[in-house]
């Protein structure tokens, strides 16, 4: 199992713990990952501006990975959605592919539709498998209730992303339960975190985020679990920013999945970067059996 690891722009600059925890977990589970330095922006924020610029941006990454003969594994769900969409279009539409390749060729690159795009959670669920993960668990959690936040761009549009059942998804819940934690049932689990509007329409963004947090809390969750840097930053840094603004005092902390898994796999906690959270994750390690 070998993949090119697509980190994107947000993780290295702002959420390095997601990268280091993922690398540690993947190594522990026997998944080899290669980092391609020439990767550029996946195109997600560029899609608001110009479609062809978005497509070219995404396609360049696909071409770089195809040149090494490796499938791409994205850690960010916005990256995943973008790369998947570009891949889907380029695989289906030969004239579009030719047009994009005409631009890429100037750099000596080409994309022929020969690789797959995956997200970290898919790789863990499908390639590694729940059984294999459970076998490696050193310290399962006990009495820990987690609300899985799936993330929009991983689930939808399902025809393109083919990640999980879009209405009743379960793979993230299964991955969480593999660690011994209980994945709570909450009605808003597939809803948007609100991050796409943060910085654009803050009032609306916060309203949506708070709805999710309230639902998570009401369902009895101790922590939210995320697998996307935007979602995580929204539930962590932005939640902290709005706590005083909206007069709230019980934050619902968010943990990234490889951090949760890493703890129960017994990985060196220095690689997991738990202290880098703005809303403290103190107390989660006490739930390990």
């Amino acid at each position: 199992m070998k993949f090119s690891l697509f980190l994107g722009c947000t993780i290295p600059a702002r959420l390095n713990q997601y990268a280091s925890a993922s690398r540690a977990v993947l190594e522990e589970l026997g998944v080899e990952s290669v980092e391609i330095g020439e990767f550029n922006c996946c195109g997600y924020p560029l899609r608001n501006i110009d479609f062809k610029v978005f497509l070219l941006s995404s396609a360049r990454n696909l071409a770089l990975s195809e040149r090494r003969g490796l499938p791409i594994m994205a850690l960010c769900q916005c990256c995943y959605g973008s790369l998947k969409k570009a891949d889907h279009l380029l695989k289906e539409d030969a004239s579009l592919r030719n047009e994009v390749n005409a631009s890429l060729e100037r750099e000596g690159l080409r994309y022929e539709g020969g690789i797959e795009v995956k997200h970290l959670l898919q790789v863990l669920h499908q390639e590694v498998g729940i059984k294999a993960i459970k076998e490696r668990i050193e310290k399962p959690f006990k009495g820990l209730r987690i609300a899985a936040h799936y993330g929009c761009h991983a689930l939808r549009p399902s025809r393109v992303v083919q990640f999980d059942d879009p209405v009743a998804p379960s793979l993230f819940d299964q991955l969480i339960e593999a660690t011994g934690a209980e994945a709570v049932d909450w009605s808003m689990k597939a809803d948007c975190c609100g991050a796409p509007l943060w910085g654009v329409n803050d009032g609306l963004s916060i309203d949506l985020t708070l709805k999710k947090l309230t639902d998570g809390r009401r369902s009895g969750a101790d922590y939210l679990c995320t697998a996307c840097p935007y979602c995580h930053i929204q539930f962590d840094k932005v939640q902290k920013m709005i706590l005083s603004q909206r007069d709230l005092n019980h934050p619902l902390p968010s943990i990234l999945y490889p951090q949760l898994l890493g703890l129960s796999l017994g990985i060196d906690r220095r690689l997991l970067g738990l202290e880098m959270n703005e809303i403290s994750l103190k107390g989660i390690e006490e739930r390990l059996a």
């Binding site: 997600y44 924020p45 608001n48 501006i49 916005c78 991050a195 796409p196 943060w198 910085g199 654009v200 803050d202 963004s205 935007y230 930053i233 840094k237 932005v238 920013m241």
Partner: peptide, 16 residues
């Protein structure tokens, strides 16, 4: 007009 895109996310993080 680029303010009306997810490029503003980072600006939002610095609003304080």
């Amino acid at each position: 007009f680029l303010l009306l895109s997810p490029l503003s996310f980072y600006r939002g993080l610095m609003k304080e």
